Simulated assay, not measured.
Amino acid sequence: MSYKLAVALVLTAASLASAQVASSYCDASSGICFQGYKDPTLDMTIGVVLPPDSTPASNEYIVNFVVPVSYGWTGISMGGQMSNSLLFTMWPYNSQIMLGPRWTNDYVLPLPYAGPEITLLPASKVNSTHINAIFRCQNCTVWEGGSLGSGNLDGTAVLAYVASTDVGVEDPSDIDSSFQEHNNFDFFGLDLSQAHSASYSKYIGGGSTTSAPSGPSSTTVPPSTTSTAPQGTQTAYGQCGGTGYTGPTVCASGFTCVAVSPPYYSQCQPSK
């Protein structure tokens, strides 16, 4: 069966002008408190809570993702863009939550990504109006081509979210299903220093359903073999600056580092 490739989650200067900033809220069904954003237009909520600061730093967090059950599929980018980011895609199937990690190095359909371990917590549910997914993600702060908060878990992260409000996935019973391009997206800034919670160990108690990508699981992040840019040079549409960012600041040939959401986020965009 043919499908239309999911394409760019490109953060343009115009759209970033309206970027929102996370605030604190608590999920009523679980009692877990998050730093996140509630989108009143798309009726979507995205929240994150991290363990207390530690040395070495923890590699996990809990995410709250609340979306209308009528949407075909929805997703989160933990790196603020589509390529070289840890992505989560989600849709309902009967009364189940179909949720899994994905990754891509280009603006094409992201494929299941081995490494992250996702556990849906007991308060997760699907009702007549919404999906409320609350999931623990282990081995999730670093991924191929990037990391949460550019490696600073007390810095600033830009999270993006997408929705296909009218077209579902090809096979909703298959967590690895292909799907068409989303028709909505937005993003927000998250101060990770405010997302750590001393109650984290209580929050993770009693996980239930586990969903994992196809293929062998791994506890390490696989080495990147997809980038064609020289070492120390950022690829097209990759992050090249922003608060707490420590990666490459020089863009590949034909691209320029643009401050699209100062001071939080700069991105390699085509040179004019």
Rank of each mutant, 00 (worst) to 15 (best):
P222K: 09
G189Y: 08
L16R: 05
A123E: 08
V7K: 10
S266F: 01
S23N: 11
A57W: 07
A28T: 10
G47F: 03
T89P: 00
G242H: 04
N59S: 14
S24L: 15
I131F: 09
G80I: 03
A157G: 07
G72Q: 06
I46P: 00
S23C: 09
T165R: 12
I46N: 00
W91S: 01
N184G: 03
T246V: 14
M78H: 06
Q231D: 10
P112D: 09
A229Q: 01
A195N: 06
P116S: 14
G241V: 03
T104N: 04
F187V: 03
I204F: 13
V21S: 13
N84R: 11
P112V: 10
H182Q: 05
T220M: 13
T55S: 15
P68L: 12
G244V: 04
D171L: 14
P68W: 05
G79R: 00
Y245I: 03
W143E: 05
Q138V: 13
A160Q: 05
P56Y: 14
Q234L: 02
Q269P: 00
Y37K: 03
G146K: 01
I131Y: 01
T228V: 09
V169S: 05
V258N: 02
T12R: 02
T228A: 05
G72L: 11
T119E: 13
P116W: 07
Q194D: 14
D27A: 05
Y265N: 04
I134V: 12
Y25K: 02
Q267K: 06
T210E: 09
D39Y: 04
T209S: 13
T141R: 05
Q231K: 06
Y203I: 13
T165G: 05
T55Y: 15
Q96A: 15
C251F: 00
T249M: 07
C26Y: 02
G215L: 12
S95K: 14
G241D: 05
L192R: 04
T228L: 06
C251E: 00
I97G: 01
W143R: 05
S83C: 04
S70D: 09
I204N: 10
Q267R: 07
P122C: 14
S173Y: 07
G80M: 02
N59F: 12
L9M: 05
Q20D: 06
